[in-house]
Amino acid sequence: MSLSKKKVLVTGADGFIGSHLVEVLVRMGAEVKAFSLYNSFDTWGWLDHVASDVRGQFDVFTGDIRDPNGVADAVNGADVVLHLASLIAIPYSYHSPDTYVDVNIKGTLNVLQAARRFGVERVVHTSTSEVYGTAQFVPITEEHPLVGQSPYSASKIGADQIALSFWRSFGTPVAVIRPFNTYGPRQSTRAVIPTIITQIAKGNRIIQLGNLTPTRDFSFVTDTANGFVAMGEDENVLGEVVNFGSGFEVSIRETAEIIANAMGVEIELVSEHERLRPDLSEVERLWASTEKALRLLKWTPSHSGRDGFVKGIEKTVEWFNDPANLARYKTDRYTI
């Protein structure tokens, strides 16, 4: 099925990936309802700053994914639900693990119950590469063991399994998308790439980071958004988990060097104790196999390999270098 003309609910639409996904969906002709976390400031997160051609072309529903009544109201009438709402910051999950269970597991359950009740045509649930833990083999396929190395990843494993159980138990049309580390414009400085860019943009040349040796498979945000569309449209993915990555593995140290080169500066890297994960919680290596995405969906990333990563970094740096965008970030503190 095509998402064009479909009524599509995007939970977590006010976030980094969600706001980009809203832009993609609006431009392809979907009727979008964007679920934004309620707050008394009447702000809609990144939805307040989407591209001008998209602004005003979607409906906003404010609520809380933890509230089953509000979630049911949001889901009612939707053809497709793309479920991105989640707490994702790993350091904060050490501080407040209960909240991660409430948002990630119970919030997902609320979405699934509502989707089952109202006969939604498709639910795409968002997983994360963190559920694999440190790679036991590479590239990581969907058959890799699941290892919860942080309360965050454990909560996502639980949410994934709840989602798949609704497919197996009730025939709810669920598919699970598992993006590897997404980056790009609008990302929070709780992630490493914006952390590096904003420190440099502020004028720092001694860059404070955590562990420099782990490797990641970084995916540009438009590739991830297009992955959501593919998962929402193709019948081959019902009951399936599908990885989405760039097929390129790079260390945090090399990532910082690529960013510094894109910004035309020389930097020194310092590992700061506050930014380090506990030893047994650090995920040392992530590198996605995207063979299944290619086989089932004919999906390939437009920002693949080292050249694609450099291109994505240059686009991200350009966005952060806009003073209006940089001003939205607290560049003088560590974001958990």
Rank of each mutant, 00 (worst) to 15 (best):
2 S>L: 12
11 T>Y: 06
12 G>Y: 02
19 S>M: 08
24 V>Y: 09
24 V>M: 05
26 V>A: 12
26 V>N: 10
28 M>V: 11
28 M>G: 01
30 A>R: 08
33 K>I: 15
36 S>R: 01
38 Y>W: 14
39 N>F: 07
41 F>I: 00
46 W>T: 00
49 H>C: 02
52 S>C: 01
53 D>S: 13
53 D>Q: 07
55 R>E: 10
60 V>N: 02
62 T>K: 12
63 G>K: 01
68 P>R: 11
68 P>V: 05
69 N>K: 13
72 A>H: 05
74 A>N: 02
75 V>F: 04
76 N>S: 14
79 D>V: 11
84 L>G: 14
86 S>K: 01
91 P>D: 09
97 P>A: 10
97 P>S: 10
100 Y>R: 06
106 K>N: 13
107 G>F: 01
108 T>W: 00
109 L>H: 11
111 V>I: 15
114 A>S: 15
118 F>N: 02
122 R>S: 10
122 R>N: 11
123 V>S: 09
125 H>F: 13
129 S>T: 02
136 Q>G: 12
143 E>M: 07
144 H>P: 08
146 L>Q: 12
151 P>R: 02
152 Y>H: 13
155 S>K: 00
160 D>C: 11
164 L>T: 10
173 P>N: 09
179 P>C: 11
181 N>W: 03
182 T>E: 05
182 T>A: 15
184 G>S: 11
185 P>L: 08
185 P>W: 03
197 I>E: 07
198 T>E: 03
201 A>T: 03
206 I>R: 15
208 Q>V: 00
212 L>S: 04
214 P>W: 02
217 D>V: 07
224 T>N: 13
226 N>G: 13
229 V>M: 04
231 M>T: 12
231 M>G: 03
232 G>P: 03
235 E>M: 08
236 N>R: 15
248 F>C: 07
249 E>F: 04
254 E>P: 00
255 T>K: 00
259 I>H: 07
265 V>M: 08
266 E>Q: 14
268 E>I: 03
273 H>R: 14
274 E>S: 15
279 D>Y: 00
283 V>G: 00
285 R>T: 07
285 R>S: 15
290 T>Q: 03
293 A>D: 06
295 R>Y: 08
298 K>R: 14
305 G>E: 09
311 K>T: 12
312 G>E: 09
313 I>G: 07
315 K>L: 15
315 K>I: 06
318 E>Q: 14
320 F>V: 07
324 A>W: 01
336 I>C: 01
336 I>T: 05
